[in-house]
Amino acid sequence: MEHYFFPYKRSSISCHRYGRGPVMVICFHGYGELGDHFRILDQEDLSPYSLYCIDLPHHGRTVWKDGNAFLRDDLLQVRQLVTSHHQREFAASGHDGRYALMGYSLGGRVAMRLFQSDPSRVHRLVLLAPDGLSSSFWYWFCTSTILGNKIFHYSMHRSLWFLKFLRQLKKTKLINKNKLKFITDYVEHPNSRRLVYHRWRTLRKLVPSASSVKSRLREHHVPTRVLFGKFDRIIKPSTGKSFARAVRSNGAYTELNCGHQLLLPKNAEAIIKALGD
């Protein structure tokens, strides 16, 4: 494993690298995680690949000092820092700058937004239980409207009422116990709530159009692999199945014997296979 810091404007982007192969894969982690969660893939089967696993703003060792929004242009520029680094290393072999994209959960949403912005350089897309396959009214309301942002800000600074509200939703079966645990794990402590607010606000613009992504995947004939856990109660596996089906002959859907967390040692073989099958 290697670790880099890429300077960007006033910020510093942390990136973990696994593998030394010529095939470049840019990876994005899930919410509250960091790039080194992809370390479970660091094994012999990874030899053809170089995985560049970026810590998103307000995650891991990335230091974000460029405002309260990480925009599409920022994402493209960070992508360019990574691809330029890889191209310099493999200049002798004439690397063409094309790469694969892989994203888990929140990172799947980011990967799709990057693909939507510049599909021509992506030769494969691997989505692991991705967020962003369907739109969320509440995410849009809380992060993109004045009223919603005020309520969100208040909730993260005075969480007692919010936790009571979530428990009431569970009692009325409007939210399942898995989602309740997933949310409460991130809002029980003041520092965690502060991070939730900044992460949601900063990444709010990186929302793909699923229909546009599917259209461009078909247009550019990009092999697309969608993996979900059979027991995922955070994001419905059926959304991944229908997405892969919409990509037609280039899409494939795989269901693994786990829940929402796919980055587990027992799943490493299936994930690496998705990079090159």
Results as ranks from 00 to 15, higher is better:
residue 177 K to S: 15
residue 72 R to M: 12
residue 26 I to L: 12
residue 125 L to A: 03
residue 103 G to S: 12
residue 274 A to R: 08
residue 179 K to G: 03
residue 50 S to H: 00
residue 270 A to I: 04
residue 47 S to A: 14
residue 93 S to M: 10
residue 200 W to P: 02
residue 11 S to G: 09
residue 277 D to T: 05
residue 78 V to A: 04
residue 158 R to V: 05
residue 19 G to T: 11
residue 198 H to N: 07
residue 183 I to V: 09
residue 182 F to V: 00
residue 264 L to E: 04
residue 264 L to W: 04
residue 164 K to I: 09
residue 7 P to G: 15
residue 31 Y to W: 12
residue 218 R to A: 13
residue 101 L to M: 13
residue 206 L to M: 06
residue 200 W to H: 07
residue 61 R to D: 13
residue 181 K to S: 11
residue 16 H to A: 01
residue 163 L to G: 09
residue 57 P to E: 11
residue 96 D to T: 08
residue 58 H to P: 04
residue 208 P to H: 05
residue 131 D to V: 06
residue 90 F to D: 10
residue 74 D to V: 13
residue 211 S to R: 07
residue 260 H to V: 05
residue 166 L to V: 04
residue 76 L to F: 10
residue 179 K to F: 02
residue 90 F to T: 14
residue 31 Y to Q: 03
residue 230 K to A: 07
residue 125 L to T: 00
residue 139 Y to C: 02
residue 67 G to I: 10
residue 276 G to I: 15
residue 57 P to I: 15
residue 183 I to S: 09
residue 144 S to V: 04
residue 165 F to Y: 09
residue 97 G to H: 14
residue 274 A to F: 10
residue 186 Y to W: 14
residue 64 W to D: 04
residue 215 S to D: 14
residue 136 S to H: 12
residue 63 V to C: 08
residue 123 H to Y: 15
residue 55 D to T: 04
residue 224 T to V: 04
residue 277 D to S: 10
residue 23 V to W: 01
residue 153 H to C: 02
residue 89 E to D: 12
residue 276 G to Y: 15
residue 277 D to W: 10
residue 178 N to V: 00
residue 104 Y to R: 01
residue 67 G to F: 07
residue 141 F to C: 05
residue 236 K to W: 04
residue 191 N to I: 13
residue 12 S to H: 12
residue 256 L to F: 12
residue 27 C to S: 04
residue 66 D to E: 14
residue 99 Y to S: 01
residue 156 M to T: 08
residue 111 A to H: 06
residue 21 G to V: 13
residue 51 L to R: 00
residue 68 N to D: 14
residue 56 L to Y: 02
residue 254 T to Q: 15
residue 219 E to D: 08
residue 229 G to Y: 11
residue 133 L to I: 10
residue 251 G to L: 12
residue 183 I to N: 13
residue 156 M to G: 03
residue 42 D to F: 15
residue 245 R to L: 11
residue 65 K to E: 15
residue 44 E to N: 07
residue 12 S to D: 14
residue 137 F to P: 03
residue 71 L to F: 06
residue 82 V to T: 01
residue 72 R to E: 11
residue 42 D to K: 08
residue 4 Y to R: 01
residue 95 H to G: 02
residue 21 G to M: 08
residue 231 F to H: 10
residue 177 K to T: 05
residue 202 T to N: 03
residue 10 R to M: 15
residue 60 G to W: 12
residue 21 G to R: 05
residue 116 Q to H: 05
residue 41 L to N: 00
residue 204 R to A: 13
residue 163 L to F: 11
residue 180 L to G: 10
residue 62 T to Q: 10
residue 241 K to W: 13
residue 236 K to C: 05
residue 194 R to C: 03
residue 145 T to P: 08
residue 218 R to I: 06
residue 33 E to F: 06
residue 210 A to D: 02
residue 248 R to I: 02
residue 10 R to W: 07
residue 196 V to A: 03
residue 42 D to T: 12
residue 211 S to Q: 09
residue 157 H to N: 11
residue 2 E to I: 05
residue 20 R to H: 14
residue 14 S to E: 08
residue 216 R to I: 02
residue 22 P to F: 10
residue 175 I to Y: 15
residue 261 Q to C: 05
residue 48 P to T: 09
residue 109 R to C: 07
residue 265 P to L: 09
residue 44 E to I: 05
residue 271 I to N: 00
residue 136 S to W: 10
residue 21 G to L: 12
residue 257 N to M: 09
